[in-house]
Design a protein around this nucleic acid. Sequence first.
DNA 1: TCGAACTTTCAAAAATTAATGAAACATAAA
DNA 2: TTTATGTTTCATTAATTTTTGAAAGTTCGA
Lengths: 167, 167
Amino acid sequence: MNYDEAKKKFISTWGSLGTLWGINKAMAQIHALLIISPEPLSMEDIMQELQISRGNTSMNLRQLMDWGIVFKENKMGERKEYFTSEKDVQELARQIAKERSRRELKPTIKILKDVSDIEDDGTLKTKELISQTKALHEMAETLDIMMNKVVGQDHNWITKALVKLIK
Amino acid sequence: MNYDEAKKKFISTWGSLGTLWGINKAMAQIHALLIISPEPLSMEDIMQELQISRGNTSMNLRQLMDWGIVFKENKMGERKEYFTSEKDVQELARQIAKERSRRELKPTIKILKDVSDIEDDGTLKTKELISQTKALHEMAETLDIMMNKVVGQDHNWITKALVKLIK
DNA sequence: TCGAACTTTCAAAAATTAATGAAACATAAA
DNA sequence: TTTATGTTTCATTAATTTTTGAAAGTTCGA
């Protein structure tokens, strides 16, 4: 496999993996492209490499920036904007963990709490609803605490902790 | 909030959360319904509760069974098939971890390995591609090892380990 | 203030994904 | 074997999501 084949394969894999995780194809592919690019890329560069429209590129770059994993960069003397990805994969993981906690886990936890707090009217179905949502609530909270711990730690913490954990 | 409201809220939340994780709405809602139902439900029951078609129900039940989190049950003397969900949330988490590893993580790891194994031709872009995919490969493998460890452990292991970890 | 260079927005179109429902298929009991 | 009860499949339709591209917006320098 040569460079071009490998690059293509990486970008398309990352793209289809993205859809599996609720991230759209273009967004995941732009990210893949940036993460392996040694130089910042302009919007034109991205459009051309991935064969996607200007609007699409603009929208998805904005989203990646909202996630805190892609940054604008200005080359001095140039008007055009350039984009780079966070290159440190551990930092990337931390950023993603942080955002998923904020966007998905936290709101879910709140609803599980509300639902599990309804009054027990003594019926079997109510008892079941309460006990199951309580269990889910507890698990979601544990997961959330862990994810947020990760965010606050130094760089190599994840690997160290995992190694310790699996021994 | 009374039982019916709480139930509705739980099912619809689980449903929209599902789409965020690459699981379709109907599938997630059927699962939600089964997890809080003290009794096994028939296909008719599910169709009626969620207002979805027979075909849709059948397809999604099959998928849930493929994931190993929903089971067929036969009431004696009755022809009809009934369905139940795995009720233990820890077991549920383990099953999901196992399946996601098999379906998503493992194939990705293979591709990352292939890509990161291309020959280094000395150019900057090749070096960048190799080093970034290597780092991702390493991280994906660590995650996979952890997820598979989880699967092999006794019931309360997850909680214990997490508690230990976050202290 | 004007115009050039560039970016963002958003209505419409395209592509993808999910849902329907009727026909085909299974199976147990009569 | 036939009927009655139930399930699965799959072509079609519907809903949702993504993409496009042209117009509107922004910003900088002259």
